[in-house]
């Protein structure tokens, strides 16, 4: 087991959070993990990304030049990272904000209308969870039920959000299954 994943979108879309959830689930499964945000003043209101590494052995570089997986929640993120994904890797794109196809033919592509599906689930802000659900199904990197448990822990103080986020995760998972 060795996976590098890049998660990217606008600031406020929750990419750092779903990155943390992936790292948590890796840790709970007994793997070594790192989570590294891109930081700096340009992060305010601009694009935002983080890199997660999940590995059997201690993690060396926490950065990734050629990730195995990419979640792109907006167009600038896809433009920036599409070509970096390893052949045979997985790209999940949010078609609500990305109006073009993935050009790569050597990767598995999952398209989800994350924003619309999130609204269906009851919270427009849960698009990140929809994308994460789809990524989990496409990569089998984590167990959906375990990730749900982590969400429950993470949103302990906001029980309403737990339900919505569980729904959104399941929705993304389901859509990816059909793809």
């Amino acid at each position: 087991m060795y996976q590098e994943i890049v998660l990217a979108g606008f600031g406020g879309q929750g990419v750092l959070l779903i990155g943390k959830l992936l790292a948590y689930s890796g840790m709970k499964n007994g793997y070594e993990v790192t989570w590294l945000p891109a930081y700096g003043p340009e992060m305010r209101g601009g694009t935002c990304n983080c890199t997660v590494v999940i590995s059997e052995k201690p993690v060396g570089s926490p950065m990734s030049k050629n990730p195995h997986g990419l979640i792109a929640l907006n167009l600038p993120s896809l433009d920036k990272f599409e070509d970096t994904v390893r052949p045979g890797g997985v790209i999940v794109i949010n078609t609500s904000l990305i109006n073009r196809k993935v050009k790569r033919t050597d990767v598995k592509v999952i398209e989800v209308a994350a924003n619309e599906l999130a609204i269906e689930c009851g919270n427009a802000k849960a698009g990140n969870m929809v994308a994460l659900g789809a990524f989990i199904e496409a990569t089998k990197i984590a167990d959906l039920e375990k990730v749900k448990e982590i969400v429950s822990e993470n949103f302990k103080s906001k029980p309403k959000l737990v339900e919505v986020n569980h729904k959104a995760l399941a929705k993304g998972f389901e859509v990816a299954k059909g793809a």
């Binding site: 943390k20 840790m27 993990v33 790192t34 989570w35 590294l36 945000p37 930081y39 950065m63």
Partner: peptide, 10 residues
């Protein structure tokens, strides 16, 4: 350095 400071690990 900034990487150690900003990175999350168990």
């Amino acid at each position: 350095d900034g990487l150690i400071g900003q990175m999350m690990e168990p």
